[in-house]
Design a protein around this nucleic acid. Structure first.
Length: 217
DNA sequence: AGCCAGGCCTGCC
DNA sequence: GGCAGGCATGGC
């Protein structure tokens, strides 16, 4: 098995259009933090409420009362950390770019990445998600799901974020759209059928599924 | 009734 | 550089 072939198989089996729905770059950035170790459906509900409340702008979020922000974020878990971190991000955008997200996202990519990484609560996966989905920049998100799928398919065996990222970026045609789609496909496959308890018998890849049909763990 | 979720930070080695 | 523990709510 190799990566282009795995991509074609997953692409035929899954529909990942509109996989990261959003109305603005800032909303994607906030969502990227809220979704850390958290079910996306919970995040979507919170974002919906925020959108409706007119909260989703750097200026407004910077000025918001912390306790009120925490209450809004509570359903996503880790709400104290996340409230602090989204507010720090908003404040950074205000102080550095007058609230313009594109000013950050359109900078030279490694420079933008390093700035994101310097923010509290923004690690590699979150920074790369923001660059890829909000900035449409060619950065692959080497999430845990990705290395899990690559290992089980025998395509690439490493748990190192940097190694997995380098592997994908160097062995796959990497326009932003393709990288985003590839990432979405990995997550869609892994979260649905290849967790701790594999559901291979339900997987739409069926006999084409490259995974060993494990029973458990 | 547990286990898991579209991670990150800190502290330690 | 890697690893353990903490962070917290909600869905299945």
């Amino acid at each position: 098995m190799n990566l282009p072939r795995l991509y074609e198989m997953m692409d035929r089996a899954f529909d990942v259009e509109e996989w990261w729905p959003s109305e603005s770059e800032f909303e994607i950035m906030i969502g990227a933090i809220l979704t850390q170790q958290t079910n996306w459906e919970s995040v979507g509900r919170v974002l919906e409420i925020m959108r409706h409340g007119g909260v989703l702008s750097p200026a407004y979020m910077t000025s918001m009362d912390r306790a009120r922000l925490e209450e809004m974020i509570k359903p996503c878990g880790f709400y104290r950390q996340k409230a602090e971190r989204v507010q720090l991000l908003a404040r950074y955008l205000m102080d550095t770019y007058k609230g313009s997200t594109s000013s950050l996202l359109e900078k030279e990519i490694e420079e933008a990445r390093n700035e994101l990484l310097s923010l509290k609560g923004v690690g590699k996966e979150t920074a790369d998600s923001i660059l890829l989905f909000a900035g449409h920049r060619p950065k692959f998100v080497a999430a845990a799901y990705v290395s899990r799928v690559l290992r089980r398919t025998g395509v690439f065996d490493s748990n190192s974020y940097d190694q997995v990222q380098r592997f994908v970026e160097s062995s796959f045609p990497h326009s932003p759209d393709r990288l985003a789609r590839l990432y979405a496909l990995f997550v869609q496959l892994a979260k649905t059928y290849c967790r701790a308890r594999p559901l291979c018998h339900l997987c739409p890849l069926r006999e084409e599924c490259p995974f060993p049909h494990q029973e458990r763990k």
